[in-house]
């Protein structure tokens, strides 16, 4: 498989604190790639740099290459037009916008858009089309709508930041199936998570710790490394356990 996204020796310091310390990552076209690591490892910062959000349009040094094009410095819309999107860990709420409108906005360049199917794939029925994407949706419902909007857009690369957070344990299988469907429909998935059981649905996984890549490979092996290395490390270094 050809590389779709390449992150080359990316370094980033925020407020004098090094967050990414030379990250290298290759995401191949058509795969589900999990980035696993404890809180504070730099995973969400890396996701932000790939999408260009949170004022992170480019790293201090290093390159982010998408389909042979350097995306450093591009704004969010330009990256989205190349085929990159991101689903937030805690998605934004929108007053006065219905789920149907939101999905249609997301999928406005998808000629095969079927909003009902997008909802069904995330375990919601068509009664949600008239609901508003606001505080009246529960955290889990809003998260599912966000994943449905990624399905509606059908991007080349979907960066999913903690897709399992806010989803009850019984529904995890639905979400795992939905991510696989996303891949089967031609979207490469880069999934950020701190749970090795979620990372196991991936084709490949990368373990990040303290702003660096520790290992890339089979999700089971990477998950095992995470359990043995990072859990002990968190116990020894509680300062690593915190917000990213």
């Amino acid at each position: 498989m050809a590389p779709l996204l390449t992150v080359n020796d990316v370094k980033l310091t925020i407020d004098g604190r090094p967050i990414l310390k030379g990250v290298n990552l290759v995401v191949n076209e058509g795969e589900i790639h999990a980035v696993l690591g404890p809180n504070g490892a730099g995973k969400s910062t890396l996701a932000s740099l790939i999408m260009g959000i949170n004022d992170l349009k480019e790293p201090d040094s290093g390159e982010i290459i998408f389909q042979d094009k350097l995306v450093n410095g591009l704004d969010i819309t330009e990256r989205a037009k190349l085929g990159i999107t991101l689903a937030w860990q805690e998605p934004a709420r929108f007053e006065g916008i219905t789920v149907e409108e939101y999905l249609k906005l997301s999928g406005r360049n998808n000629p095969e858009l079927d909003v009902v199917e997008c909802l069904e794939l995330v375990g919601l029925d068509c009664s949600y089309l008239n609901r508003f994407v606001d505080d009246t949706l529960s955290g889990g419902e809003r998260k599912r709508v966000e994943l449905a909007s990624v399905l509606a857009m059908r991007p080349k690369l979907a960066v999913l930041d903690e897709p399992d957070s806010g989803i009850d344990f019984a529904s995890m299988e639905d979400i795992a199936n939905m991510i696989k469907t996303m891949r089967d429909r031609g979207t490469t998935v880069l999934m950020i998570t701190h749970r090795e059981e979620i990372a196991e649905i991936a084709d490949r996984a990368t373990l990040m710790c303290d702003g660096k890549v520790v290992q890339t490979g089979n999700p089971k092996d990477v998950g095992q490394k995470f359990k043995t290395m990072c859990v002990k490390c968190e116990v020894r270094n509680p300062e690593l356990v915190g917000g990213e």
Binding site: I53, I76, A80, T85, P91, A92, L105
Partner: peptide, 10 residues
């Protein structure tokens, strides 16, 4: 909100 919609291509 702005970044979410821009990430969908708006």
């Amino acid at each position: 909100q702005l970044e979410t919609l821009m990430a969908r291509g708006l």
